[in-house]
């Protein structure tokens, strides 16, 4: 995705929104504020020149030392225009994002996995419950603070104290 075109589009549609762009290994990334991410995604999907009609993946990265703590990554592809982009946003633990499962059906399970693994909530999601882990599972395993060996790990007690589910 050509960042120059995207910058032009984004500043045109979202004047006053603070966002940043980056490019590495030929792949473009845009970071937007958490409260605007759904608007941006909707714009990217509906704009005639961008047409990001497929949401390939929704995922998160945990940075315990940073504030806000989590980085949510949306990987988009346009099947018509043949370009890709990653949209990122940051969110603090305990805060919720707006769901995009009404924009793309694939976000349904993608966001459920995000919730299951990181405990990130998505407002308006039709069925936000655990997907890969069992329903009675304690904690969010892909957080950096979750010990590798789970409940058998001596560090699990610390995890339970610092991050009650």
């Amino acid at each position: 995705m050509d960042l120059a075109i995207l910058n032009q589009k984004l500043t045109g549609a979202f004047s006053g929104m603070a966002y940043s762009t980056a490019e590495a290994c030929g792949q473009a990334t845009v970071e937007v504020p958490a409260d605007r991410v759904k608007d941006v995604l909707k714009f990217l999907r509906d704009d005639a020149d961008l047409q990001f009609d497929m949401l390939l993946d929704v995922t998160a990265v945990d940075y315990p030392a940073r504030t806000p703590r989590f980085e949510i990554v949306y990987i988009l592809v346009s099947t018509e225009r043949r370009h890709r982009i990653r949209i990122k946003t940051r969110i603090e633990d305990g805060r919720a994002l707006q769901t995009v499962s009404d924009l793309w059906r694939s976000a349904d399970w993608g966001e459920r996995e995000c919730f299951d693994m990181f405990g990130i909530r998505f407002d308006g999601h039709p069925n936000l419950k655990r997907i890969l882990n069992p329903d009675n599972f304690y904690g969010y395993p892909l957080r950096k603070t979750y010990p590798l060996r789970g409940e058998r790990d001596p560090a699990f007690l610390d995890y339970k104290e610092t991050e009650p589910a």
């Binding site: 390939l56 993946d57 995922t59 990265v61 945990d62 990554v73 990987i75 694939s106 399970w109 993608g110 996995e113």
Partner: peptide, 23 residues
């Protein structure tokens, strides 16, 4: 798809596998 976040060390900081079956 493999989404890798590297922090410059010998182990990945985050690996996300975009599996086709899942979707």
């Amino acid at each position: 798809g493999f989404y890798i976040v590297s922090d410059g060390s010998g182990k990945p900081y985050r690996v996300k596998v975009r599996s086709p079956c899942f979707y």
